[in-house]
Amino acid sequence: MESALQSRAIQEASALCRPFEDPVGDASRMFRAFLTAMSHPGRVVAAFGPGDYPEPLGTTGFGAALTLLDADTPVYLSPQIGTARTLANLRFHCGCPIVDEPAAASFAFMTMAEAETVLPKLSVGTPDYPDRSATALILGGGFTNNDTVRLTGPGIYKYKTLGMNAPQGFWTHLQCNADRYPLGFDTVFIAEGEIVGLPRSTRIDPTITAEEC
């Protein structure tokens, strides 16, 4: 006879996905994808994850979680991302604390549609410790060749254009974020098989309306 606890355990185990085939090597390769993305803002960088993954994270999002998260990183999951399966997998594989408030998170997963509500609440660090800030991991949104925004700043030779299916007003948040430099959160866009980094140091073309900064 199964107790409630046992059946819950079985349920959660069936929700668990297999992690990286080569946990050490793949984490190092995935980290290098992140390092390339952050040091070349706006560049579409090839990334990957395990073949089996919790649906809302996608394979690359799951790969990012396995690479970056552990018990030292409080994680916020937006409503669309934070399904029971995501929670079970992050708890088991990463052991990261899950927080309810974006402000308490060092990493925050969200969809593009939810970014507008989550981004303004993220930690931007303190003047003495600008590194005590969050990293926003925004899932979905394929990268297009349409020149949506023009990027300049460290890591970018002259300038770079980045196209993305972003909701209206989305870029305003990131512009405000860049205006606070050296404070601010860092952003990584995660699509299937590719990521784009947008650290706080990147300036976004001012031709886009920047109200409410």
Binding site: A27, F31, L35, T135
Partner: peptide, 21 residues
């Protein structure tokens, strides 16, 4: 160990985001 590497990797990403800090 992997835990130490993850901690250092996160520090490196922050360092890249705020050049010179």
């Amino acid at each position: 160990d992997e835990g130490a590497k993850r901690m250092i990797r996160r520090a490196i990403l922050k360092a890249v985001a705020v050049p010179g800090y």
